[in-house]
Deep mutational scan, measured.
Amino acid sequence: MSIQHFRVALIPFFAAFCLPVFAHPETLVKVKDAEDQLGARVGYIELDLNSGKILESFRPEERFPMMSTFKVLLCGAVLSRVDAGQEQLGRRIHYSQNDLVEYSPVTEKHLTDGMTVRELCSAAITMSDNTAANLLLTTIGGPKELTAFLHNMGDHVTRLDRWEPELNEAIPNDERDTTMPAAMATTLRKLLTGELLTLASRQQLIDWMEADKVAGPLLRSALPAGWFIADKSGAGERGSRGIIAALGPDGKPSRIVVIYTTGSQATMDERNRQIAEIGASLIKHW
C-alpha cells in the first residue's frame, strides 16, 4: 500500500482519535458579512469528516447552483462504474471539434489522439474542462443518470439537468442544476469515506481534487503551510461562485467545507476574496 493510499485508508482512524471539535460562531459572522459585502445569498456548511456531524452552517438547506462543483460527483459516478466493471479508466475516447464547448483548455489539445477516461476526469476536476465533463456525462448516460446515481446514494436534493455550459445559467428560483450545502457536503463525505467506492477509487477521487489547479484564489489562499486540501470550485452566471473541499491540518483532511453564493453584482475577484476570507476565519478558529 502506498503512503497516499495509507493516508486515505486511515482518515477515519486518525479522526477518531482527534480531540473533540467545537464550532466557532466567528466564522458564521464572516459568512454573514460576506453576504453584506456581496449583496447576495451565501450558503455555508462545515462537517466533521469522521462523524458527519454538522459543526457550523448557514442557509444549509437553500438551493444554490452547483456550477462546476458537480464534476466531482460526476467522476465519482464514473469511478463507481469502474468498480462495477462497467468502465475502464484506460479506455480512450475520441471526439471532434464539434464536441468542444466553451472553456476546454485540455480537451482542445487532444482532438487528434483523444483522451482516456482517467485523463478526462483529471481534466474535468483539476482544470474544470467543460468538454471533458460533457464527454464523461455521455459515458454514464447524461445528466439524468448522474441525478439517479445521487438518488441511489441517498441524495434526493442534488440534481443535474443540463450539460456544460448551460448548467451554469443560475436563474433565480430555478431548481435545475442545483444542490443544497448540506446535501453536497453529505454526498461528498460519502464519496470520500464511505463504502460506495473502493479504496482505490476513493484515493483516485481525492487525488484529482488535491491536484486542483484553478481554485488557488479561494480556500487555498488562506491555508497555512502543512495543511491538506482537496477541492473543486465552480463559477456561473449572475454572480455565482462555489467551492467544495476536504481539508485539515497535519497533512490530512478532517472536515468537509461547502460554500456557495449566487445573485451578486460583485466582480469575480471580490467573490473570490470573500470566500478566501471565510476560509481564513475557519482556519483561525479551527
Rank of each mutant, 00 (worst) to 15 (best):
I256V: 11
T147E: 09
Y44K: 00
R118A: 15
L120T: 04
P105L: 06
V21G: 08
Q274Y: 12
Y103D: 05
R238P: 09
M1Y: 01
E26T: 14
W163Y: 12
K144F: 13
E210G: 10
D269H: 13
H24T: 15
F64R: 01
D33E: 12
G142H: 04
E175V: 15
L136I: 09
V117W: 01
G90P: 08
T187P: 00
L10V: 12
G194I: 05
I45G: 03
F13Q: 05
G194L: 09
V257G: 01
Q203S: 13
D33T: 15
A170C: 13
T126A: 10
G76P: 00
S221H: 12
I45S: 06
L89G: 06
R162A: 07
R92I: 14
G263A: 08
M67V: 10
G236W: 01
H94P: 09
F6K: 13
N130Y: 05
N152V: 10
D36S: 13
D113Y: 11
G114N: 05
A245L: 03
A280I: 14
R271T: 11
V31G: 02
G141Q: 07
Q274S: 10
T178I: 04
T27P: 06
F14Q: 03
A170W: 11
D113S: 11
M66A: 07
I283V: 12
T116Y: 05
S2D: 07
V78N: 02
S264D: 04
M1E: 01
A200W: 07
A280S: 14
A230S: 06
R92Q: 10
D177V: 01
D99V: 09
Q274K: 12
V78G: 01
D33I: 14
E164D: 01
S80T: 12
K30Y: 05
P65A: 06
L19V: 15
R92W: 09
I206V: 14
Q88M: 11
G39P: 05
R63W: 04
P165Y: 05
F149A: 08
S57R: 12
H156W: 11
R241L: 03
L188C: 09
D269W: 10
D174R: 03
P172C: 10
T187F: 06
N168I: 05
D207L: 12
A133S: 10
S233Y: 01
I283N: 03
G234S: 09
P105Q: 06
R162H: 10
G154N: 08
R238D: 07
M184C: 06
G76Y: 05
W227E: 01
G236A: 09
L218R: 02
T262I: 09
A170T: 08
L197S: 05
D48Q: 08
E166K: 12
L55P: 02
M184N: 01
G263Q: 07
G263P: 04
L100N: 03
A185K: 00
L136D: 00
I206E: 09
V257F: 04
L160A: 11
I278D: 00
R220E: 03
R241D: 02
W286D: 02
H110G: 08
A77V: 11
R176F: 08
L19S: 15
Y95N: 01
A225Y: 13
M209Y: 00
F70V: 10
G248P: 00
Q86M: 11
L191V: 09
V21M: 05
I244M: 08
S281C: 12
S264R: 05
A222C: 15
Q274P: 05
F17V: 15
A230N: 01
M115E: 03
S57F: 09
N168L: 05
Q88S: 13
T126S: 13
D177L: 01
C18Y: 06
G85V: 06
L160S: 11
D129G: 00
N98Q: 15
G154V: 04
G142L: 01
V82G: 05
L146H: 02
I206M: 14
A9H: 12
L73T: 09
R118D: 12
E87R: 02
G76R: 00
H110V: 05
D113E: 14
L191R: 00
P224Y: 04
P65L: 03
T179L: 01
P217F: 07
T187A: 09
T179V: 02
V157D: 15
G239M: 02
L120H: 03
N152G: 14
V8F: 15
R118N: 15
A148L: 14
L197H: 05
F70S: 07
A132S: 08
M66E: 02
R63N: 06
L219E: 03
V42D: 00
P20R: 13
E270Y: 08
R176I: 06
Q274D: 04
F14E: 02
M115L: 13
N98L: 15
D36Q: 04
L55I: 14
M1R: 01
R255I: 05
Y103F: 09
F14S: 08
T139R: 10
R189F: 12
F14V: 11
N173Q: 15
G142E: 05
M180I: 12
L282N: 03
A77C: 14
E237N: 14
A77Y: 12
I243M: 06
A235P: 00
P65Q: 03
L79R: 01
G234F: 01
D161A: 06
S104T: 06
H5A: 08
I45A: 12
S233D: 00
R241P: 00
A235D: 02
S233V: 03
A182D: 10
G242M: 02
H285Y: 12
A222D: 09
W227Y: 07
Q37K: 15
T107Q: 01
P143M: 04
I283W: 07
E35S: 05
W208Y: 06
P172K: 10
G242H: 02
G90M: 13
L135T: 06
L205R: 00
A245R: 00
N173K: 13
L111K: 08
R81N: 12
N98C: 07
Q4L: 09
L196G: 12
F14C: 09
I256Q: 01
Q4S: 13
G279T: 07
N130E: 01
L111Y: 10
A9I: 12
A170G: 13
L282V: 13
T69K: 00
L160F: 10
N173R: 14
L74S: 03
F13S: 08
P105T: 06
T69N: 02
L89H: 05
L111N: 06
R176G: 06
N134D: 05
W163T: 10
V72C: 07
I93F: 06
Q204C: 14
N168M: 06
F22D: 07
I278T: 03
L188I: 12
T187M: 08
L79N: 02
K252Y: 12
M209E: 01
V29S: 10
E145I: 10
D207H: 09
R238V: 09
S128R: 00
S104L: 01
E164H: 01
Y44R: 00
V31C: 13
R159E: 06
V78W: 03
Y44T: 02
M127S: 09
G236E: 02
A183K: 08
D212C: 04
M209W: 03
I11G: 08
D231L: 04
I54E: 11
T178H: 02
E35F: 02
F22L: 13
E145V: 12
A280G: 12
G43T: 01
L146D: 00
A280V: 14
K144Y: 13
L150W: 06
G114P: 03
R159K: 13
L218M: 10
T139D: 11
R7C: 06
E270M: 13
V214R: 07
A15R: 02
L167H: 03
A266Q: 12
D99C: 06
A123L: 03
L111E: 07
E62V: 08
V117Q: 03
Q97D: 13
M1Q: 01
F14D: 00
I125E: 01
L120S: 03
L135S: 04
L111T: 13
L160K: 02
A23C: 06
H156T: 12
S2A: 08
V257P: 00
I125V: 12
E237L: 13
A200S: 15
